[in-house]
């Protein structure tokens, strides 16, 4: 059974409707985003299901998932804090900011906090160079920008997200 299709029939149809009927393959990336919203990473099952919907091979889907950095083939934290440490941001203090963040979260880049809430990642330029330091937050099927950041603003965000997760649980 195709869980993605049975769980999100409308979304899948809406995605497919954007492309010519004989070009279902174009739907692979939007479907990967849809699938990733579930578990915050792409499972082998999702790959097979997307292959079926888009009428391509599982290998072709997996290949796309592997090429793009916003698709994750391994589980991480519920939220990925993706700090831009590219050239223009570094010129405006992104390196220092990252150090502070590591100390605050108590993890290194590539690690996840013990509560499974946050993974810390470094990313390339996010088109927010004038508002460095900045990061994007990927999780819950969304990506949001957080610009002109300080340790205080991050702390507020982290605490809010933890509190929200606490309430859900």
């Amino acid at each position: 059974m195709n869980e993605l299709l049975s769980k999100y029939p409308q979304e899948v149809q809406r995605i497919l409707a954007r492309y010519p009927a004989e070009r279902k393959r174009s739907a692979v990336m939007p479907l990967l985003f849809l699938a990733q919203a579930e578990k915050n990473y792409i499972t082998p099952q999702a790959i097979a299901e997307i292959a079926e919907i888009a009428e391509v091979s599982a290998t072709e889907v997996a290949s796309v998932a592997g090429f793009y950095t916003l698709f994750h083939e391994e589980p991480g934290g519920r939220y990925r804090i993706q700090v831009c440490t590219d050239l223009p941001c570094v010129l405006r203090g992104a390196d220092r900011f990252l150090q502070e963040l590591k100390a605050y979260l108590g993890i290194e880049v590539g690690q996840t906090t013990a509560d499974g809430m946050f993974s810390l990642e470094e990313v390339k330029c996010l088109a927010a160079c004038h508002r460095a330091p900045m990061f994007q937050l990927q999780g819950d099927g969304q990506i949001t920008y957080h610009e002109d950041q300080t340790l205080e603003t991050v702390r507020a965000l982290v605490e809010e997200l933890r509190a929200r997760a606490g309430k859900e649980a």
Binding site: R23, V28, M29, P30, F67, T69, L70, V123
Partner: peptide, 22 residues
């Protein structure tokens, strides 16, 4: 149509490949 993290997709032919699901 959303890309997913790849600078090269700004190059127009890579962009088209990406839009075709590749």
């Amino acid at each position: 149509h959303l890309g997913a993290g790849a600078y090269i997709c700004g190059e127009e032919t890579a962009l088209l490949e990406s839009l075709e699901g590749k």
